[in-house]
């Protein structure tokens, strides 16, 4: 096995007196899809934010390509920033209402490739709009002019602008209509196939996680209670909580039927 891209070890995060993550271990290898499941409040979003450096760890380490991020130099930190991107749950909230879609998509370039000319930037933005299935004139409009699904396409496009090695998806479809969820998941899988990016896919939608993941990690009360290859976990869950979680999930037949619905 190759060396992990992302390696989280013994990560603990607390909000005041309330612990959100307790000694969490997690690995993501290049090109791998890791599903992260658990009920709300289990610490899924906190883990996503900690991986991105948006919340400070109280203890433990987050390593990117073997380098400890908390002690990384400014340069190394920025380089890691460039390779790890995120798609949030609420597409509209994650887009600045004052910016045009073109400005939103150009921002990663402005931050990481400031020397790029305006023309080159516009070309990259236009190319990305096409890849995520948005019309070219979207660049001049603002997020409010788009539907939730379209906004999530914009958010995905922003995250993919720099061709990251790891894309963290924090419940990327749960705020969307069921009919649109499949489109976004398919978009993510397409882009992953094209770029070879790894995905850390956070969701409470077990059928989707089962469908796309190579490995699945179960969070419960801020701890990782089970971490196993996808089929193994779904076939023979070991931890009682995982069993409970799977039992509460829709019947596999129903899930299969739904998969038909989700991926036409």
């Amino acid at each position: 096995m190759n060396e992990p891209l992302l390696e989280v070890r013994g990560l603990s995060v607390a909000y005041g007196a309330h612990p959100a993550l307790r000694a969490v271990d997690l690995q993501v290898r290049a090109g791998e899809v890791v599903g992260l499941v658990g009920e709300s409040g289990a610490g899924k979003s906190t883990l996503a934010r900690a991986v991105l450096g948006l919340v400070r760890a109280d203890s433990g380490s987050v390593r990117w390509r073997g380098q400890e991020l908390a002690r990384a130099s400014r340069h190394a930190w920025r380089a890691a920033r460039r390779e790890v991107q995120i798609v949030f749950q609420d597409p509209l909230a994650s887009l600045d209402p004052r910016q045009t879609v073109g400005e939103i998509l150009a921002e990663p370039l402005a931050v990481h490739e400031p020397r790029l000319g305006a023309g080159a930037r516009a070309r990259r933005v236009a190319a990305m709009l096409e890849r995520v299935g948005l019309p070219a004139d979207a660049a001049t409009r603002r997020p409010h002019d788009f539907s939730g699904g379209q906004c999530q396409r914009i958010a995905v496009a922003r995250a993919m602008m720099l061709a990251p090695a790891l894309l963290v998806c924090d419940e990327p479809v749960s705020a969307l209509d069921v009919s649109i969820q499949g489109q976004i998941v398919n978009l993510l899988l397409d882009l992953k196939a094209q770029t070879g990016a790894a995905l850390l896919f956070i969701s409470h939608n077990l059928p989707v996680v089962r469908q796309i993941s190579d490995r699945v990690c179960v969070l419960y009360g801020g701890r990782v209670v089970e971490n196993a290859p996808c089929e193994e976990l779904f076939a023979s869950p070991r931890h009682p909580y995982t069993r409970e979680l799977l039992a509460a999930a829709p019947d596999p037949l129903v899930a299969l039927a739904r998969r038909e619905l989700v991926y036409p």
């Binding site: 948006l54 991107q85 909230a93 600045d96 921002e107 990663p108 931050v111």
Partner: peptide, 19 residues
């Protein structure tokens, strides 16, 4: 979240505040 998104992109405080 759009502020978090900008930070996640790697934008520094000056850029986040200004833009």
């Amino acid at each position: 979240e759009f502020i978090e998104a900008a930070v996640a992109l790697g934008a520094g405080p000056a850029r986040v505040i200004g833009v």
